[in-house]
């Protein structure tokens, strides 16, 4: 039960982190004319954060 609450708290923290990472103002930092790995920076950033959040959720829950 204590472990489950800890997992829940980690997920809440992840929610807050994700919310901050893909909103103004941090999002505006990546709104630039630059291409990373052939992909426009903002596309790569948004999808990268998205994937990272999912990976972290999986890690928090399944470890």
């Amino acid at each position: 039960m204590i472990k489950a609450t800890l997992t829940g708290q980690r997920l809440v923290a992840l929610f807050l982190l994700g919310w901050v990472l893909v909103n103004y103002p941090i999002l505006s930092v990546f709104d630039v004319d630059r291409v990373w790995l052939g992909i426009p920076a903002i596309y790569l950033y948004v999808f990268g954060v998205w994937a990272a959040v999912i990976a972290l959720m999986a890690w928090i829950i399944e470890r």
Partner: peptide, 20 residues
């Protein structure tokens, strides 16, 4: 452009709160 993303980003984030 990215205008469709928030419709799926919101669920992705809020699902983290589903634990509670």
């Amino acid at each position: 452009g990215l205008g469709f993303v928030p419709i799926f980003l919101g669920p992705t984030l809020v699902v983290a709160l589903w634990w509670f």
